[in-house]
């Protein structure tokens, strides 16, 4: 186990190293006032030491250290992404099971058609459609932001759903529901991508498992379909889905930036776009490295989670697969 973690960490560190080299070279090329002593190695050493100590430079736009700005903004993005994953699991697993059980049937075709539409639809367009219908036409949801601005909620964790409940204001439950309302549409848009992925994966692995002999044995024992799925099917079908969810994280984060821009969600997306407009190089670079590191970390974390949950995966520990 320990050796496996070390192995995974190795990959993580090497990828991060390559990324930092790319970022460093770009910065050397682009920024004219970059302190350039001519010796590329010593420059890089200085650069990487600064990065490792959390010094991403100072943002030109705000005058704050870049890391401070990112840490203040990133929870908003993370909250949105996590909600999207929760929704995608809540919707994706049941849909995947139904589709997997009726492979080739009408339900399967129906679900897969919707899934295909979900993959193909551009996020920004979908976001605008939802906004026009649910917000402007029906007036159910707000069009932008994280929470009604009249709710003055002090920042503790940066996650609005938690902060509202932690606050001591008399209107904290109202504020909590208000931030749920604000989350609804962006979450829906963002959830389309991982949901379709979950549906496809669950469908495939359920379909595969249901043909296996132990399921037939269970059927012979007289268990009904629900019991079979609950006791045997899901247990074997779900764990392989986990690493693919981790891989989705990068895509979700990219889509989150678009979604955030459409819904004026004060997360890392609009922040990066704004930094680009202002040619705030240290912010762009810091943001890029931070996001990349975060995605890599998330991948590694899901890998380890998979390892803990899936006994078959543990074979890898002993080099058996």
């Amino acid at each position: 186990m320990f050796i496996y973690i070390i192995r995974r960490l190795n990959v993580f560190v090497i990828t991060l190293f390559l990324l930092s080299v790319v970022a460093f070279l770009l910065q050397r090329q682009v920024i004219t006032d970059f302190v350039n002593t001519g010796n590329i190695l010593s420059d890089y050493q200085r650069y990487i030491l600064a990065m490792l100590s959390g010094n991403f430079g100072t943002s030109l736009a705000s005058g704050n250290p870049v890391l401070t700005d990112i840490l203040a903004i990133f929870p908003a993005t993370l909250e949105l992404c996590l909600m999207a994953f929760v929704v995608s699991i809540l919707i994706g697993i049941p849909c995947g099971i139904f589709a997997g059980l009726s492979r080739g049937g009408a339900v399967d075709y129906g679900i897969m058609t919707i899934t295909l539409m979900g993959v193909s639809v551009p996020a920004f367009w979908f976001a605008m459609l939802l906004m026009m219908f649910f917000s402007l036409h029906l007036g159910w949801f707000p069009v932008s932001g994280r929470i009604g601005l009249l709710y003055d909620i002090p920042v503790i964790t940066g996650f609005n759903l938690i902060d509202t409940l932690l606050s001591t204001k008399p209107y904290k439950y109202e504020a909590f529901f208000d931030s749920l309302l604000h989350l609804a549409l962006p979450t829906l848009v963002l959830a389309t991508i991982p949901t379709t992925e979950v549906i496809r994966q669950v469908r495939a692995s359920i379909g595969e498992e249901m043909d296996k002999n132990y399921i037939k044995a269970a059927q012979a024992k007289g268990l009904n379909t629900f019991q079979i799925i609950k006791r045997h099917g899901l247990r074997n079908a779900l764990p392989p889905v986990i690493p693919s969810l981790g891989l989705q994280f990068g895509r979700v984060l990219t889509t989150a930036m678009i979604t955030e821009t459409v819904f004026s969600w004060p997360g890392i997306g609009p922040w990066m776009v704004n930094s680009i407009y202002l040619e705030d190089h240290s912010a762009i670079q810091g943001g890029m490295l931070f996001i990349a590191a975060f995605v890599l970390l998330a991948n590694m974390a899901t890998d380890l989670l998979h390892l803990l949950i899936d006994p078959l995966k543990r074979n890898e520990l002993y080099g058996k697969s």
């Binding site: 007036g139 707000p142 004026s264």
Partner: peptide, 22 residues
């Protein structure tokens, strides 16, 4: 008791927020 300025540079978005009551 309270007054909040919601900084929204795009006029389209300002109108959308006005319509939804934000």
């Amino acid at each position: 008791q309270q007054l909040v300025f919601d900084i929204t540079p795009s006029p389209t978005k300002r109108l959308a927020k006005l319509i939804t009551g934000e």
